[in-house]
Design a protein around this nucleic acid. Structure first.
Lengths: 214, 214, 214, 214
DNA sequence: AATGAATGAGGGTTCATTCAT
DNA sequence: CATGAATGAACCCTCATTCAT
């Protein structure tokens, strides 16, 4: 009994530690890619950043490539969770939820310069790396599905005619990405509030009864 | 005398050749970055792609970094020239010119997947490379200046009120960049015409009298 | 008292377990070296092969080098035991015993491809590892002593003249090793019976009255 | 003209240098494997031994494995050439040539301890490396073909009956390999002359009229 | 006694850069 | 100008060994 418990406990702790290490390394990767760039980030950089030893990356991930993949996946999952959380905390209507998503996109938590830098680093490499491309595409499609559904609901409930939900959603998604790029490249010219206003300006065209021109 | 002439002639020819070689290498760089990605492009790749010898890059450019810089500058200049050419060929009004710019942005010449890939590769690395950042920012600012001026003119001439030229211009610029990213990542979901329509949809909000909702 | 007994019993059991583990690891080493080669065999390979945990090798042997040494010693001892057993089971005369040794050398038990592979792996490394060299040399010398003694007896009893026991023995030993190499490298060209016949052919020259040309 | 010659000359020289470098590296590999063993030979060892820079191996060979392969091939070719040369310099009869081969096998040039060590190193690794196995097997077969043909001729011309050329040849080949192993492992117990005498002793059984019992 | 996560020295390999030709 | 062999720093990765559990 005692022994079993002990073993289970130890193993449970170990498993937990393993997950912790992975997270530790992923976070260090994000910091390092943000600081040094994708091409310049070495495994030594990451482990030093994490305060761990060199060999750990190949123990927990199989290779540098896999670490990068997992980092991308982590970022993707994190963003998705934040979306769902934002929608859950928002008001009951589809418009409330859509606005909450826009707010989220330009909130400090998502709009963190470090994370934006990492996103664009991965996008820059995605073209020539099928796996990244896949993860990014899946992420994009998921996001657009959510936004399209919300738009569809607004259209139906709000009685908007002559407008396609997919078009609005694709445009919004593209606009947000483009604004993130602006914020990353020329942060002084594009503060978050400004970016959010532009997004709302865009939505106020599609859904004038639900979004006021700021 | 003769000799001098000859030398001058030869030198002129040489200069020309030199310029040709540089262009040849830059074009090879674009192809290579598009195919392999920024981080994976080596000098050997580039010279092989160009059909030239390894040592030439360090002869014509000083280093790999400089080659990349020049490539980015080349891309930037090329785009700018195309903008001016498109505006020159367009109708006389600001709206004509603005529409021409949008058409250009999704025309095969600019919207070439290889070039988009290179743009995003550079953007991905720009954060951690001041020189790239600078070139990209300058490029952006120039483009936004042009678009802002056009918007300003449309606003003034068209009698639009309660709208800021900069906001519209920034939004358009971001939207186009975002659409490019979509086209790069999920080309099947976003054909050029679609992207152009979304851009026009955006402009039709700001300037309903000048751009019809497609 | 009881406690002491218990301890002794437990210790005895433990000792037995310890010995079992060592054997288990040595056998796994043999399999691994045979499959992957000496240079490519890692401790992880060995423990995985044995179905045991990584740390065990350093617990039971002090290091990888020691594991290899012990494996070589094991192989050497195993072969020696088999020799004595074969001689004990053989007929009473020296010629009987010599023939039994030859039979043993090409019997499945000794002539196992996996073990041959391991022998040659060690011989390949022996040159640059004094300890291996020592173990191999001792093994060789012991074998040649046995064979030389048998030859000597045959010479004396059989009345052979003009022949040195050492020469015959050295030749036989070399021939067997060479045939093993052939069997390892080109098994299809050299089946065990063939190899044994060649050995007997060799002996029939030295001792025509005792070994018939096959 | 002049220019062409010059270019040809330069290129010719370069080609020559390239071949020289390869040889230089192969020789260094042989020395290093002989001294340190196969598993312990690093690329740094080889290049240091050759007095060249680290990167050269991957320039001239594609990888360490390829260097090892080429080294094995070199050794194999060298031995084969020596065989043909020895046969060409020998007397006219098949027996003369066979004796010359045996002499060669125990002459300092072939019987060099360093080279023997390398042979056995490769044999040790061959089992788990198909390419080595292939090269070694081809080498073996070529040698046995030569020896078998010579034996066949001796049998026919000398009127030997009840003896198969292949058996004698296989036995001789195995015997020589086994003797090399002895010379490598316990050089003091097996001087070259001794080894040669044992080989001739073997041949004197098969072909008593052509080889005298030493 | 047994486990396997952690360490980090050392391995093979790549590649920007140099320079003799 | 052009070439590509040569260099060696720096990379990713492996793996024997250690040690907390």
């Amino acid at each position: 009994m005692k022994k079993d418990n002990k073993n289970t406990g130890a193993r449970g702790k170990r498993e937990k530690n393993k997950e912790l290490r992975r997270l530790q390394l992923i976070r260090a990767t994000i910091r390092s890619v943000a600081r040094r760039g994708f091409a310049e980030t070495t495994m030594a950089d990451v482990t030093r950043e994490a305060g761990l030893s060199l060999g750990l990356i190949n123990l927990h991930f199989k290779s540098k490539d896999r670490l990068m993949e997992e980092t991308l996946r982590h970022l993707s999952g994190e963003y998705e969770s934040a979306c769902f959380a934002a929608m859950a905390s928002a008001g009951p209507t589809a418009a409330d939820k859509l606005r909450a998503l826009v707010e989220l996109d330009f909130s400090p938590r998502v709009c963190d310069r470090r994370k934006l830098a990492v996103w664009f680093s991965f996008w820059g490499e995605a073209r020539s790396r099928p796996t990244y491309q896949q993860i990014c595409a899946r992420n994009d499609r998921r996001y657009e599905k959510i936004v399209t559904d919300l738009c569809q609901e607004i259209i139906e409930v709000g009685g908007y005619a002559g407008i396609r939900a997919a078009t609005v959603a694709n445009g919004l998604s593209a606009l947000v990405n483009g604004l993130w790029l602006d914020m990353l490249m020329t942060p002084d010219d594009m503060p978050p509030e400004n970016a959010r206003d532009i997004s709302v300006f865009y939505l106020s065209h599609a859904f004038p009864n639900h979004f006021a021109n700021p």
